[in-house]
Write a protein that binds this DNA or RNA. Structure first.
Length: 867
DNA sequence: TTGTAGCATTAACCTTTGTTCAGG
DNA sequence: CCCTGAACTTTGGTTAATGCTACA
């Protein structure tokens, strides 16, 4: 399985973060983790087979001391990934079934089976006949009850067939090996089941959903996703009943839950007697214990009651209407675990309705923020892009449900509860501000989650451009964190004196926007470090301008302006924080002068660089021409025989000859090779072949990436030529392509800007400048087109200058130069202007998320194409 | 019997202003 | 002589999530 294949698992798992600690795991390569997705739309509980070594953690831990065996990172990732794959696969399969439930022919057949009286029950409900909405609601529910009852009587449910939950260990131990799920290959199979009026509970619910839709009732196919749990603890608890104490070894004990393959009905299990023939009264009474309580379904239906404007759950297998409390399986049911409950609507979109059915819904989706995020990402492409009124109503209802769920009954349940908090679960930087108790839990006060305020140190508020209001007292004091060496020394010094260093934390309300002291007489205020904090634009002093260019400090100093370097962030390396300086801040009246001087200096240094380069190129040309002339002379003087002889001599002498001539010969030969040059021309979009020779000599400068570039000229000369042909002939790697791409859009931009170089100076985007000086906003926006704009600008200028003033050969050199924008330097320059807080991993994660989203979109598109 | 506290482990996150020296 | 930039160094502390055991 390649990386692409599993990339949709999501970055949140952290599995993709760099190298995993594979060496910790002692799983031999003979026992690989393999996840097979059955091809085709075969939907059954056999859709996924996951094979894993069952003895995983024991082997590797035994080497160490007899400590508690803990799941290795690799296994956790494998479990998590299995869970994710399984979840997505089950969702996809359900999406397909949901689509089948829209089949027109299926609708027609189901309707033809339905007694007219039942159908009339729904068509009778009409505003004209019954103006009272609540009464209409009751009518609807009654009609639905009759329909459900009829279905329940009519449809023969196979016992013990259908999707079941299996733990990771069970699957690993091969619990699924003998299991034969029912196979429903297409709408036709569904129709067959409909005509036969028999099938699994899953099929029953799916058909019932289709039936409701055929009657014009908005109906959802609800699915409690039974994916492999990733937690090792799930299924482990030792209820002696049906769960094997250790699923790993329990082949025999497993047997009782595994349906016997082949003949599906013979082994009728009395516990699952869900047949029609029982009179309802008795059945209810009797079912309440084992089947009703013990066997909530995995699939069921929600119908929309238009008069009431809400969704009503219907379980056609147990003949339940509007009893949402009876869908949550008991905690230890090994076959049914409620984790996510998803409702598929007619249009193929889904809604997460877990909260409606799970009692402690707040506790269900564990696994932390990352897992929640992942789940949201899974649902995102399946969610309706717009909202219907009924969605809002439903959300309100679900929200209300959380409210009336009441206070948790355990300490752990208070953790991350959306409504309540215990003080013990507060974080370091959190405090409960209006300390109004909303209740008590085992003697501890319970507070409302909304009263939790997150705090920051005064310094941290400053980083947000906020300062404390006068007289603010810290709401909390916490021991100081000593992260940098300096801080650590401070803390240690204090500790030596026996005092503890605490730092005060303040709330947002205790702060106000920081207004820096204004510029006075061109004097820029500075902090203790001699620079100016500019973390956010609002921290720019009145009358000041931020010029975010590198090297402006030097110029400002030369010009004699008062200035302060702008600190826009920090970089953390080796327990040390170094400020990120982004240009300078000067008084507004000095801005134009400074900018002008800056651009002049940029132009100047570019000119110098260009001159240097021209010199280098000219030197090489001189050498080449010189060599050619020597060669010509030598040939004239000595090569009196035929050409072949002369070349032969040269080839033979290549290694011990004088060197100069042979070397030149090499050069000449390479240059006249027609093929590589052609490619070069095309690739570089050079207009004529006439300038190829010169351009290539020049281009070598850009393309040679060896460090000896500016070193020995001979070496340079020899390396250049093959390298050009090589780089153009060899297929480019993905990375090369990727590096080239960002450069491309720059070329036209640079060319366009050429005439008005000076009036539209390119620069790295800098919000600070534009924020304080609106008149510069337009220019700033224009600049902000790309972070590498500065580089593009430089090249543009160089181009224009050279074409004005240089000799013809130099001009062509400069021209080709403008086209050959070297990728690497531009990127480095741009990179330095970035804030240090954008970590590499975040970018990676984003890219991976993008990938995952794309995959899901594809899945969603595939599954809902005909929907 | 269930729930939970306690412990171990891991990963992710937070942190927030140097010095020296070679080379241009 | 001044300025710039690279190299140096080694790696914390807290919190949350998770799994497991013991115990009320």
């Amino acid at each position: 399985m390649s990386d692409e294949d599993i990339s949709f698992l999501g970055a949140s798992s952290g599995a993709e973060d760099g190298e995993m600690d594979w060496e910790e795991v002692d799983i031999s390569p003979a026992e690989p983790v393999s996840v097979n997705l059955a091809p085709g739309p075969v939907i059954s509980n056999k859709t996924i087979e996951i094979t894993l070594p069952s003895e995983k953690s024991k082997g590797k831990e035994k080497a160490g001391p007899p400590r508690v065996k803990v799941m290795s990172q690799a296994e956790r990732v494998a479990r998590l990934n299995s869970h994710k794959i399984h979840t997505v696969a089950l969702l996809a399969s359900t999406a397909i079934r949901n689509r089948w439930a829209n089949d027109k022919l299926l609708h027609a057949r189901l309707m033809s089976l339905t007694p007219l009286a039942l159908q009339h029950g729904f068509s009778m409900i009409h505003k004209k006949l019954q103006p009272d909405a609540s009464k209409r609601g009751r009518l609807f529910e009654a009609a639905m009850s009759r329909l459900c009852e009829w279905w329940y009587e009519t449809f023969d449910v196979y016992p013990d067939v259908g999707i079941k939950s299996r733990t990771y260990d069970q699957v690993a131990a091969g619990a699924l090996d003998g299991e034969e799920g029912e196979v429903v290959r297409s709408e036709k199979s569904l129709m067959k089941h409909a005509l036969q009026r028999s099938g699994s509970r899953d099929v029953s619910a799916q058909l019932f959903t289709a039936l409701c839709r055929s009657l014009g009732i908005p109906a959802r196919l609800v699915f409690s996703v039974q994916s492999v749990p990733w937690q090792a603890s799930v299924g482990k608890p030792k209820p002696k009943k049906s769960t094997p104490s250790t699923p790993v070894l329990g082949d025999d004990s497993d047997m009782e839950e595994v349906p016997i393959p082949g003949p599906s009905k013979p082994k009728a299990q009395p516990a699952v007697k869900l047949r029609k023939r029982k009179p309802p009264g008795r059945k209810l009474q009797e079912d309440i214990r084992p089947p009703l309580a013990g066997w909530p379904p995995v699939f069921w239906t929600e119908v929309f009651s238009r008069p009431d404007g809400r969704w009503i759950p219907v379980d056609p297998v147990r003949n339940l209407v509007n009893k949402k409390r009876l869908f949550e399986p008991p905690k230890n049911d090994p076959n049914n675990r409620m984790t996510y409950v998803v409702a598929f609507e007619e249009d193929g979109y889904v809604r997460d309705v877990t909260r409606r059915y799970a009692r402690a819904s707040t506790k269900l989706l564990r696994g932390g923020r990352a897992h929640k995020e992942w789940w949201e990402n899974v649902l995102a492409p399946l969610t309706r892009p717009y909202r219907l009124n009924r969605d809002d109503v439903e959300d309100d209802e679900l929200q209300y449900q959380t409210v009336i769920e009441g206070m948790p009954t355990s300490v752990a349940a208070f953790k991350d509860h959306p409504l309540y908090v215990l003080e013990r679960h507060l974080r370091r930087d959190e405090v409960i501000h209006p300390r109004t108790e909303v209740g008590r839990f085992r003697g501890d006060p319970v507070f409302s989650r909304s009263a939790v305020i997150s705090l920051k140190t005064a310094e941290n508020w400053m980083r947000q451009g906020r300062t404390l209001v006068e007289g603010a007292q810290p709401l909390k004091r916490v021991p100081m964190r000593a992260v940098t060496i300096n801080r650590r020394r401070e803390v240690e010094a204090a500790a030596a004196e026996g005092e503890e260093t605490l730092q005060g934390l303040y709330s947002y309300a205790q702060t106000k926007v920081y207004v820096p002291p204004p510029i006075v007489d061109g004097k820029v205020p500075k902090n203790d470090f001699g620079n100016l904090d500019l973390y956010v634009p609002s921290m720019l002093p009145a009358g000041a301008v931020h010029i975010p260019h590198k090297g402006t400090a030097k110029i400002a100093r030369q010009l004699g302006f008062d200035f302060a370097e702008a600190v826009t962030g920090f970089e953390f390396k080796k327990r040390r924080a170094t400020p990120i300086v982004t240009g300078v801040v000067v008084a507004a009246e000095n801005e134009d002068a400074l900018l002008e001087a800056y651009w002049a200096s940029v132009a100047d240094s570019e000119e110098k660089e260009r001159a240097k380069r021209r010199e280098r190129v000219l030197k090489r040309w001189t050498r080449l021409v010189h060599g050619l002339r020597i060669r010509e002379r030598l040939q004239k003087e000595y090569a009196t025989t035929s050409n072949g002889v002369a070349i032969d001599v040269e080839v033979q002498d290549e290694h011990h000859a004088g060197g100069f001539v042979t070397e030149l010969d090499n050069v000449v030969q390479h240059f006249t090779l027609p093929k590589p040059q052609h490619v070069v021309v095309e690739n570089a979009m050079r207009p004529t072949t006439a300038s190829q020779l010169r351009a290539d000599a020049d281009a070598g400068d850009d393309f040679v990436l060896t460090t000896t570039r500016d070193g020995d000229e001979d070496v340079d000369m020899e390396e250049v030529v093959p390298q050009v042909s090589q780089s153009t002939l060899a297929p480019k790697t993905m990375q090369q392509l990727a590096e080239e791409r960002p450069i491309e859009p720059q070329r036209p931009a640079a060319a366009k800007r050429q005439p008005s170089t000076r009036s539209a100076p390119a620069a790295p985007p800098q919000p600070v400048a534009s924020a304080s000086r609106p008149r510069r906003a337009a220019a700033a926006v224009a600049r902000a087109a790309s972070t590498t704009a500065a580089r593009g600008k430089k090249r543009t200028r160089r181009h224009s200058v050279s074409s004005d003033s240089a000799t013809s050969s130099v001009r062509s050199e400069a021209g080709s130069d403008a086209e050959f924008v070297p990728p690497t330097p531009a990127r480095t320059v741009a990179g330095r202007t970035l804030r240090a807080r954008a970590p590499k991993s975040a970018e990676k994660v984003r890219a991976e998320k993008e990938l995952e989203r794309a995959y899901r979109r594809a899945v969603a598109a595939a599954t809902s194409r005909d929907a």
